[in-house]
Design a protein around this nucleic acid. Sequence first.
RNA 1: GGCCCGGUGGUGUAGUUGGUUAACAUACCCGCCUGUCACGUGGGAGAUCGCGGGUUCAAGUCCCGUCCGGGCCGCCA
Length: 581
Amino acid sequence: MRRTHYCGNVNTSNINEQVVLEGWVNRRRDLGGLIFIDLRDREGLVQVVVQPESPAYAQANRVRSEWVVRVTGIVRARPAEQVNAKIASGEVEVVAEGLEVLAEARTPPFPIDAGWRGEQDQVVSEEIRMRHRVVDLRRRTLQRNLRLRHKVVAAIYRFLDQEGFISVETPFLTRSTPEGARDFLVPSRLQPGQFYALPQSPQLFKQMLMVAGFDRYFQIARCFRDEDLRADRQPDFTQLDLEMSFVEQDDILELNERLAAYVFKETLGLELPIPFPRMSYAQAMNCYGSDKPDLRFGLELADVSELFRGGEFRAFADAEVVKALVAPALLSRREIEELEAIAKGKGAAGLAWSRYEGGAFSGGIARFIPEGLKERVRLEEGQTVLFVAGPWRKSVESLGAVRLELGKRLGLIGEGFRFLWVVDFPLLEWDEEGGRWTYMHHPFTSPNLEDLELLERDPGRVRAYAYDLVMNGAEVGGGSIRIHRRELQERMFALLGIGPEEAQEKFGFLLEALSYGAPPHGGIAWGLDRWVANMAGEDSIREVIAFPKNKEGRDPLTEAPSPVSEAQLAELGIALRTPNG
RNA sequence: GGCCCGGUGGUGUAGUUGGUUAACAUACCCGCCUGUCACGUGGGAGAUCGCGGGUUCAAGUCCCGUCCGGGCCGCCA
């Protein structure tokens, strides 16, 4: 006889019913005569009581944590004073009539029961958790996170289906393209010496689907990038990838706002105010020192270049920019030193400072503070003003990093979810090492048509139809309007130093597609792992991925990557330069 | 590639200025216990302190190297 209910769903409506439950022993309490078993499945716990005279008693006596059992019994209301308010089924219990052990279990390597009764799970090192991921996945937090992820994906499908989007799968085994991140390569057996690459994103395929007339495409797509890992980066990760034809930038932003709001409403029950704020890249960088500003707190940077220009403080007098940030506290020398280390890490020459105390500046560069600075940065009693001077980008980014650190240290970061669009990214940026222009988003991004005349004359000033979606200071999405005319795409390649032959060799299939009549189109990709991690309140995307890799790119569970046999290599025509290493 | 933090019974921690038998909680095993719900209670087992070397009369503790894990920078169209 199979189960009749999920353990966690048994409640007062089942009183006096005979139920069959199957699940894991979350905890067993042996009172010497009576035995209580908290039986668990994915829906939660229910208390099973086994009386000494019950036929279930003998088995209940030997059962241990995490054994898998089947219990037959009658649901009974608990006396009022014995109700357990911490669990959903706490008003009832199941009086066991039979108990069958379906599987015994080794003692788990770390406790997994606490979360299921509404308490905090013990913190266990990630190393141990990953090695025993199956056990870890039994814990309530991961169960909850993965179910949230499922609900997000299901909501995305519902919404986009309603909006006329068509889900299309694109290949995993595809062609290596030279740009972007490092490719994962897959050797071809049938074409020895040649390689597939795993896709860094379905970018070119979705553009070709637009040319093919699908009009609206989406895919929950696995993507692969062979770069170093972080808390928010895995070598294989998931994008919500979508693309639309005959649209302009605002159409895409508007649709994605509604999608985000729908997802939040359907999964967390939260109403997101839309439209989201929009901020130009220039404004984001100037005010927050980041192209993904965290708007959960203020602390905007101020430009004070003019106040210092030509002044007696030589280091600031002829700097390209001088940026200031007011910390709403009197910072100690030690704190300032730590902040300076952060600024220097981002390329600042130093972090100048002065405290405003007792109506006067003191410490740091107090004697160089120019007239009008206090008013300019709205400095108040008991605050510290911090400065970085130098080239624009390094200055704003380093002070932006200081801003983030201050937000954390001073506890300024508020609750909730703050979204914004960052728009008007530059199309190109100067690559110091390569001594050439390179794209900021990708080489298929359309220039802002208003800036088209600047393309060859002053490339650095050309804005792109590119946009990032930022959530609580994390980049959770990015996209663009694409180039849909072959001539412009070729012009773009030329600007990037990709000659006609190279363009033909590497992107010929795209150019050919564009030559057959491409609709204006654009789209976006959401970093789904980051979205869900943020929604779940997790700092690492590993907490929303069932089987993640560690920081070295290894899977501690399967111990991938692993050596392969000589025979496998031979079949692929591959010889290792350093055997086993 | 660089910087930083960590590694002590199964798990999570403590371990002072280098000094006796490495402590605590929990888990585990055995006994007692009929209303517990992190049951209680009595007992027991369990750690070459990541590994290697060095300093020292003496190293979990100090030094060097190394391995493993985590955070960040670089990198991530």
